[in-house]
């Protein structure tokens, strides 16, 4: 049942809280309001703008990040709820030596057009490959089924993931 307004909003003040977030192996301490999503904090407080907002409602997958190795939607995750967990964004895929094999495969296969869905596609594929190193095309399609590409370059994305698998 919908609640009308917020009856006790006048009676209390929501305060900022300190949160310790482990993002791409680095510890970050941020002071945030409890209603802020992981996506907002990543983009606006930490400055990692790789994860994108598409729909903001969980249907497009542009905000996909990995939390403890599982692909989740950062736009529907409260930042406070992932304290102490390992968060991986697209910025954490490459290392000092350069792009990850998966990123390299995306480039080589032209699996990037406008690029807006790419961080989500990469992380969904990364989660798949870490669990299933040799997926077939059906498994790849299923893994990226929540990531919408409006340039409709799915064929090349599937090819790229296949080539990056063992």
């Amino acid at each position: 049942m919908p609640e009308k307004g917020n009856p006790d909003r006048r009676n209390y003040r929501v305060k900022k809280q300190l949160a310790q977030l482990r993002i791409n192996g680095e510890e970050h301490e941020v002071a945030i309001y409890s209603h802020r999503t992981l996506l907002e904090v990543l983009r606006e407080d930490i400055g990692l703008t790789g994860a994108k907002e598409g729909c903001g409602l969980g249907t497009c997958g542009a905000c996909t990040v990995l939390v403890n190795g599982e692909a989740v939607l950062a736009c529907l995750t409260l930042a406070l709820s992932v304290e102490g967990k390992d968060i991986l964004t697209v910025e954490g895929l490459a290392d000092a030596e350069g792009l990850s094999p998966l990123q390299r495969a995306f480039l080589d296969h032209g699996a990037i057009q406008c690029g807006y869905c790419t961080p989500g596609m990469l992380l969904s594929s990364e989660a798949l490959l870490s669990k299933n190193p040799c997926p077939d095309d059906k498994e790849i399609s299923r893994a990226i089924s929540g990531n919408i590409c409006r340039c409709t370059g799915y064929v090349k994305i599937v090819e790229a993931v296949r080539s990056a698998s063992d």
Binding site: N6, R9, Y12, V14, Q17, Y33, S34, H35, R36, T37, L39, E40, R43, E53, C55, G56, L57, C75, L78, L80
Partner: peptide, 10 residues
Amino acid sequence: MLRLSKFEYL
């Protein structure tokens, strides 16, 4: 960005 309204987190 589509944002949530304020609430207290328990």
